[in-house]
């Protein structure tokens, strides 16, 4: 069972949301759809930041390790001195690690976003459940009576 409230603008949306929460509706029972980011929403519902950041962290650390891993492994697998530099030269290898940190971190965040938001919505791609247009929709789950 769900109750749907449709609002035409941002002010009304924020007001209604605040009203619902103040009225004792638990935050996890409130769902919403809105056409552009409304920063008050997080504040009102009091949710902690989502888990995309863990994907970012794991991706970035993997990238950093992979950067040093690749460079050190390859240079030791065929030890050839060039330019009189030590085989394992940290400064240039750090550059590769730095770049791969950024690359893996971004791609992991991107993948995390897809995974967590359940996108793409394969079954509903051509037939969206609701085309919210520019309306703000609040859906409140209600207990079965």
């Amino acid at each position: 069972m769900a109750r749907e409230i449709i609002l035409e603008n941002r002010e009304a949306f924020v007001r209604k949301l605040r009203e619902l929460v103040d009225g004792g509706v638990p935050a996890e029972k409130i769902h919403a759809q809105f056409p552009y980011p409304v920063h008050e929403v997080e504040e009102i519902l009091g949710r902690r930041p989502g888990p995309v950041r863990y994907f970012t962290l794991i991706g970035a650390v993997t990238g950093f390790v992979a950067g040093f891993g690749l460079t050190i492994y390859t240079v030791l697998s065929w030890p050839m001195i060039t330019g009189g530099k030590p085989l394992v030269s940290i400064p240039p290898f750090l550059l590769i690690a730095y770049i791969l940190t950024i690359l893996f971190g971004s791609l992991a965040s991107f993948a995390g976003f897809f995974f967590l938001s359940i996108l793409p919505k394969i079954g509903r791609l051509f037939t969206p459940l609701t085309e919210q247009a520019n309306r703000f929709i609040i859906t409140v789950e209600e207990e079965k009576r």
Binding site: L45, S106, G112, L119
Partner: peptide, 28 residues
Amino acid sequence: QVLSLGWEGRLGEWRNYNQLYLFLAAFA
């Protein structure tokens, strides 16, 4: 429709989206 990935502007989508955008900006 394919490019939009079935985006519906839901609360959860926006939360992850905002975070992703912030991280991508921070990486770029």
